[in-house]
Computed example of a mutant assay.
Amino acid sequence: MDSDIAHQKRALRAELRERRRNLTSLEREDASAGFTENLQRLVAEVSAQSISCYLSSNNEPNTRPFVNWAAEQGIRVLFPISREDGLLDWTVGNNEDEIEGLAGVPEAVGELLGPIAINDVDLIIVPAAAVDASGLRMGWGRGYFDKTLGSMEKCPPVYAVVFDSEYLEEVPREVHDQPVNGLVTPTRIIAF
Rank of each mutant, 00 (worst) to 15 (best):
S3I: 14
C53A: 08
P179V: 10
L183A: 06
N22P: 00
R21L: 11
D177F: 01
T91A: 13
L112T: 01
M138V: 06
G101C: 09
P65R: 08
E174F: 08
F35W: 05
A33N: 12
V109H: 05
G150H: 10
I81Q: 02
A11V: 13
F192Y: 15
C155F: 12
F79D: 07
D132M: 02
E27L: 01
L168Y: 14
R142V: 11
R19K: 05
F163V: 02
T24H: 01
S165R: 13
A31Q: 13
D30R: 15
G135H: 05
L183S: 06
L136F: 12
R188E: 15
L12E: 06
E107P: 00
L168W: 07
N119R: 15
A129G: 03
A108R: 01
D164K: 05
A191T: 14
V109L: 12
C155V: 11
R83C: 11
E166W: 11
Y159P: 00
D132P: 00
M152T: 12
V126K: 03
D97K: 10
A133S: 13
L112G: 03
A33W: 11
I99E: 12
V105L: 15
D89W: 07
L23M: 07
I125E: 09
P80L: 02
R142D: 14
I99N: 07
M1P: 04
I124G: 04
F163H: 15
T185A: 02
I118M: 03
E166D: 12
D164Q: 11
L113N: 03
Q8A: 12
S3D: 15
E98C: 08
R41C: 11
P127A: 06
F192K: 06
D97C: 08
T185L: 04
L88T: 03
S134V: 00
D30Y: 13
L136G: 07
L12N: 10
V180W: 09
